[in-house]
Design a binder for these strands. Structure first.
Lengths: 147, 147
DNA sequence: ATCTTAATGCAAACTATTTGCATTTGAATT
DNA sequence: AATTCAAATGCAAATAGTTTGCATTAAGAT
């Protein structure tokens, strides 16, 4: 079931390559944004990424604009935790679709692979004859530490 | 599997009763808000509910405040379609948990009962030992009409 | 009829995000 | 290396959705 093809490791270099192949210029802000997303997984908001800039070397608006560009280029994915803040994470491959289990206390994020369950979901939905069905699915709870 | 107890029909009267039992006063805005939510199912935003007021007889801020109150009283549920707008719908009973399949074209909303799938979801998540696990799950696509 | 507190109106504040416009800069081209 | 030009940026202002402070009003208990 699992693909035998090893996942091509995502590096800052490969990401900067992707920029190029998407017709996006390699600018300092973009380097920092991609570097930040590469450093840790948890989806990050524009603010969080922005705070990561050592010397506020670019405008917050630039972060927003770039996140939109990177999303269009399918290099990052937008996550919705239902709190009115958009968060983004790197897309590691075409088939790295997953969800999150977020602790309401410490905000720790567990990665969930619900691939099989989603097949079931598609079955359920088939009768409605909708095309291009996508979904948002995020889980919340209290982690062992915070209980 | 399905409960034999017939669902106690939700009426404007029963809703106004619920207001009382939740220590909430019966005010004109509240009557209209509940009436609106009772009229059709689709989760509605504060704006949409507000527009339903025949003569703008109350302030939009009042609608927001009341939606918050009604949510706290567990009379309505907040839905998140990932577009930065909060939408609300009546809770018809303790066990009326469901999701939506929303057409990206005409915005038509289908109600999905994914109860069984959610049991599976809980199984998947068990190993993380999170407590009080909740989730948001909404589906989007293009309905037959809009294809 | 009175009283107390919750509910409301109105305006201002707030948060996350977007946009207009002048300026700068990456990178393709000479 | 210098030129060029669209793309990217900075900055400030605009926007959307929602919340809040405060003085006033009214629901419903006494």
């Amino acid at each position: 079931m699992a693909k035998k093809t090893k996942a091509p490791e995502l590096t800052l270099e490969s990401l900067l390559e992707s920029l190029k192949s998407n017709g996006l210029k390699l600018t300092p802000p973009r380097k920092i944004i991609l570097g930040t997303l590469l450093k840790s997984h948890g989806p990050f908001s524009a603010e969080e990424i922005y705070k990561n800039f050592a010397k506020k070397t670019c405008d917050l608006a630039t972060v927003y604009r770039n996140l939109t560009h990177l999303e269009n280029a399918k290099m990052i994915r937008r996550c919705d935790f239902g709190d009115g803040v958009a968060r983004y994470e790197l897309i590691h491959s075409d088939h790295d679709h997953h969800h999150h289990l977020i602790c309401k206390g410490c905000k720790k994020v567990e990665i969930l692979d619900l691939c099989e369950m989603e097949n079931l979901l598609n079955l359920y939905v088939k009768k409605y004859d909708f095309k291009n069905v996508t979904h948002i699915l995020e889980l919340f709870g209290t982690c062992p530490n915070c209980q």
